[in-house]
Amino acid sequence: MDIFGDPAQWLPLTFAGLMGLSILIYVVLDGFDLGVGLLFPFADEAEKDRMIASIGPFWDANETWLVMAVGLLLVAFPTAHGIILTALYLPVAVMLVGLILRGVAFEFRAKAPPAHKRAWNMAFFTGSLMAALSQGWMLGIYVMGLETTWATATFAALTALFLTVGYSYIGAAWVVLKSDSALQTKAVGWARGGIFGVLLGIAAISVASPLASPRIFDKWFSFPEALLLLPLPLMSGIVLLALWFTLARLPKADDSFAWVPFAAGVVLFALAFFGLAYSFYPYVVPDQLTIYEAASAPESLFIIFLGVCIVLPVIVLYSALAYTVFRGKATELRYD
């Protein structure tokens, strides 16, 4: 292993990177599934079926990125895993119940007696809402150093709300991409509403974070490191502006640019994510444990690293296959 340098240095960093990547992929991919669930109350029966069809073949694989992320936390930073998850015990439980309801509602609403369908639709929405809110809450508490006080709880309530809005936005963007005619027009409207929320959310959290956490304040406003951060708000601004103009002109008759809202959503999520990652490095438990202190034995990490190197490209390949097989508008899926 020496050819790479000191494994106790690069392995923890690599794994922190992998974990971050899994979380980002999860938030984007399951974000659009959950978002579709959040938009459920605004759709009529037929639209609901089509929205479900648009995520049906993907949601399971999307959710697997969450298992991957928590798995990497567990295997690479076992001590941190214990501290974080016991501190977040309740929101984790809420999220799990939410994911359970959402996941099974998919199947039940298609198979249960018609009289029960409404109840499963309800479960689908409630589950998505529980999962989105609790994930946002956990993000907030984590940013605040895993402490629950009135101030941090208020902050977490804010992040919960805005992550939920963010998910609805990307869900709407997904529906824009995967639908046509009336539903697509409707979804563009949802996305337009969502974009306000996203804007407000990013602004509010950017203001509140440094105010609430001195550590983040130092990271953001100490010269010259702060220069590194500058591109993030700039790029977010540009993307938002471009998005604003595109949304005003969608949907197009020839369906061009339908991918823009989704792509822009991905970029925004990624930018926000890098901002966070920058604020936290090198900590895995804020202010308590760095990734180097929390890492498992290099031997174990190396074994997993080998697996990751071999398997990750394959996973990307067959995920790509799945998305290619089910490309195009979701209506076509129904009577396969």
């Binding site: 399971d60 694989a61 697997t64 295997v75």
Partner: peptide, 16 residues
């Protein structure tokens, strides 16, 4: 980790 990498993604991707 090997379970997630080798099995879960395989199942989930081809299930669709």
């Amino acid at each position: 980790a090997y379970e997630v990498l080798t099995a879960f993604f395989l199942e989930a991707a081809f299930l669709g």
